[in-house]
Every structure is written in C-alpha cells, then in structure tokens.
C-alpha cells in the first residue's frame, strides 16, 4: 500500500509537471509549482516510511515551509508579468465599485 501510494504521488507530480509545461498563463505555472511542492512533502513522508527512516519527516516539514515562502516570494514580484491588459486598465480590476 505504501509503495502504491508513493507511485500514485509520483504520477500526480508528473501531471503537475505537464500543467507547468503547457501553461498557458504565468499563474498556471505557479499553480503547478505549488502543487508539485505539496506533493513533494507527501512523497518525502511516504518515502521515509517505505525506507523505514521516519527522520525524513523533519525534511518534509522544512520543505513545506520553503515551498510556501517561495510561492509567496514569486507572487510578490509577479506584477510586471501582466500581458493581457494594458497597465492603465489594471487599477479598476479587483476594486470595489
């Protein structure tokens, strides 16, 4: 069962990789990165149990935090990646009427 779940997580990581490759927008790629990261946390946990070394859980914990911080950091600097609308129009989006 452990090995089956590990293989399933590997398949999902591959699916997330495909989504990151075909895009089409910048945010789809970040979504793929985020999904890949959460699945990596689960993968490390499962791998620790498969190999009989639960110390891997510490690495999984640190990886969860790094994944969160990296996604937030990329988003912080993503304002200039806007290709779909002219900059003057952007302010009206997301504001209240």
């Amino acid at each position: 069962m452990l090995i089956a779940a590990t293989l399933a997580i590997l398949v999902v990581m591959f699916l997330a990789f495909i989504r990151g490759y075909i895009g089409p927008t910048f945010y789809d790629r970040i979504l793929a990165v985020n999904m890949f990261g959460t699945k990596t946390v689960l993968f490390i946990c499962l791998l620790g149990f498969v190999m009989g070394r639960p110390e891997f859980l510490d690495i999984a914990m640190v990886y969860a935090l790094i994944n969160f911080i990296s996604v937030i950091a990329i988003l912080r600097y993503s304002g200039s990646f806007d290709e779909r609308r002219p900059p003057g129009n952007r302010k009206s989006i997301g504001r209240d009427v």
Binding site: T25, Y27, I30, L31, N34, T38, A64, L65, F68, V71, I72, L75, S78, G79, F81, D82, R84, R85, N89, R90, I93, G94
Partner: peptide, 19 residues
C-alpha cells in the same frame, strides 16, 4: 498554509487582470 498560498495566488492573478 495551503489555503493561504492559494488565496495569495488567486488574488494576485485577479488583481493583475486575469479574467
């Protein structure tokens, strides 16, 4: 953590004009 990062991702996408 996951809801926080999904919310940040959605909000950034929405504010940068992805309809």
């Amino acid at each position: 953590i996951n809801p926080t990062s999904s919310h940040a991702l959605t909000k950034t996408a929405f504010q940068n004009g992805l309809l």
